[in-house]
Design a protein around this nucleic acid. Structure first.
Lengths: 204, 204, 204, 204
DNA sequence: AATGAATGAGGCTTCATTCAT
DNA sequence: AATGAATGAAGCCTCATTCAT
């Protein structure tokens, strides 16, 4: 029940009013916990302590809430990937760091991770398209690291880079299904293992 | 009222009534296409060409339809895994074959794959528990193969077997998200790549 | 409060179920009494003694109810006009009879008359177009009688036939605004006066 | 809270605040275009470029806006009728002029004409009563002209004066339904035709 | 003179399910 | 084996209005 997205409110201090952020926060928590369709607007506003009208003052619709959540996730993930991919150092190190980080971030915002693949259907077709396009760009950025390593002979090219990326991100996205924040493994530990597996599978 | 589930076992194509199977088939297609909650009973029966009464003759509820789908998937996957795991030959070969097969089967029944992780929320809590338990047994059977290899020194034990399995199945389950049957890659090709990556990551 | 549309149920005996007709009847009464927007679906079904679900079993939406009412009115009026216009006899007599009849029918179905011009806005654009087209055909049929009289010299052509028709039907349609069934004037009396005025204004 | 209506009398273009007039103007346009209920306060203020608070500063309520519109129409029409009825000259000429003028005025303020009969339902009962009373006085003033002509033998009394007036005004009020300012007919032309028809129908 | 956040009531509609036949 | 009418609960959303500033 930890509000996984608490860090988001730091995003734009000054502009973000409390109520809007609280609505987004509770919506995230509830969508992750019981799914978009099984969460009623009534439940969200009750959790925040306002009325429906307030929600419709800040958001166009229930779908709009979801859209905002997707936007937030996409923005955050791309930011972090760029940071690691553009760093200095050997490609193997950069890939390992980026891989570890996406696991850690996914675990820190586990609600977002759950929602991302559970609720794609609920987005309006055109929004879905935007999300997928943004997602593709993200994958491509990651894939380029693999290709870079393959070209320089650091990584094996037995399996196409594209597929390596799909393989890896499938694992990451499914963290929402099984990872338990109260369990024995920290996000960093899982991240290290996942990154190790990725790098191991790429050894020439 | 509960005439339905009793019949499930006689799934021989010749004995089974067409209507029941067609209902299950269309439900699977529609749940995969647009999600459980966004599919109405009306749409399912319309797709089959019968009325609601017919559906409620064969199934207790809309949830019951979903339960049947889960049952079918779990049964099939366990059957196939057992077949490959219990075969003769070196553990590396058996693991590779099982890994490839689960990909191929997931791709052949892509709708089932999509539904499995999309609709877990919709199952009644006790059914969810059963499904998770069955799923755990499945993972354990797979994990045992990895452990066997680690114990015999064929596989590295740098990463815990449990985690290797979670890593691998995350990738498999996410096939529903990106795999396109009309695309350039056959299920067998993806299966081979995935199995190769798994084995590569386990090299000592 | 007389159900002005009672005669409609004779339209298709055998096919029309009681509930559907009763819904249409109460909707007509209430739309005329307080306007479409100020009548809630709840009020309609309460007046009939069923639940909302029943209404949505027979009609697609509240708008659909209105559409049906328009269809009924248009059908009835065209039928009657055709009957009088196609009769035997001098054109002056036929026009007088048709004019009288439209007044009598408008008064007998006063609720329909009120609704017709009050609720055009509420129809979906495409339905509105259909209604207007049908209405135009009706006017043209009437106008043709005037033209026939003008061509044969029975009527003056000082004012264009088109305008004579608009002039006359404005009066007819506004009956809903002032006519009181419990007042001193019968529909036939008003009809005679209106028809007399029409014919008088057409004297050469 | 009731600061608004006091101001109505100072309608001199120079003294009046722009905002109040613009609100009334856009409200008139929108009510005519899509009906009172289908126009939201939000749409009105957006069209003017202010916020809701501004509207509630000048008007007590949305209904108050409508009341003002009715008041404006009633005042204007009575003013003009009085002008023509009290003029010099034979009654036939005065009636013809008054009849023509009401058509021209109705066409010049076509939005008002549309609203008048479309939105009567939306007025509070007591306001409705006032409007109807004022309207009756208006009709009576017109009817008196007809009676004057009938008594002096200039007009036929085959049809009661009351009915002649209802007949004529039905036509006038319905202009909002069909008259198109961009069409081939000017208001004056329609006015002449309508007045001619009225006079023709009254020929002894 | 005007804003913008927030309310609260009410509206339309969807839908899984039941039941008599 | 199957129909079709009907229910009842719940859901999303709109909107006129208020109020502190």
């Amino acid at each position: 029940m930890a509000r996984s997205t608490a860090r988001v409110s730091r995003r734009d201090p000054g502009t973000d009013e409390p109520v809007r952020q609280r609505l987004l926060g509770e919506a995230t928590r509830l969508f992750a916990e019981r799914g978009f369709e099984r969460t009623s607007v009534q439940e969200i506003v009750a959790a925040v302590g306002v009325t429906k009208g307030a929600m419709y003052h800040y958001f166009d619709s229930k779908d709009d809430l979801l859209k905002e959540i997707y936007g937030r996730v996409l923005r955050l993930q791309m930011e972090r990937l760029t940071m690691f991919a553009d760093a200095e150092g050997p490609v193997a190190e950069r890939l390992h760091a980026a891989a570890m980080d996406v696991v850690i971030t996914s675990v820190e915002n586990l609600d977002d991770t759950k929602i991302f693949f559970l609720s794609m259907h609920q987005l309006a077709p055109e929004v879905q398209k935007t999300v997928r396009a943004e997602r593709r760009r993200y994958h491509e950025r990651f894939r380029d690291l693999v290709i870079e390593g393959q070209r320089t002979g650091v990584f094996s090219d037995a399996v196409p880079a594209e597929m390596v990326v799909d393989f890896f991100f499938g694992s990451v996205h499914h963290l929402g299904t099984w990872y338990n924040p109260d369990g024995p493994l920290s996000g960093a530990e899982v991240g290290r293992h996942f990154a190790d597996l990725l790098l191991a599978s790429l050894r020439p």
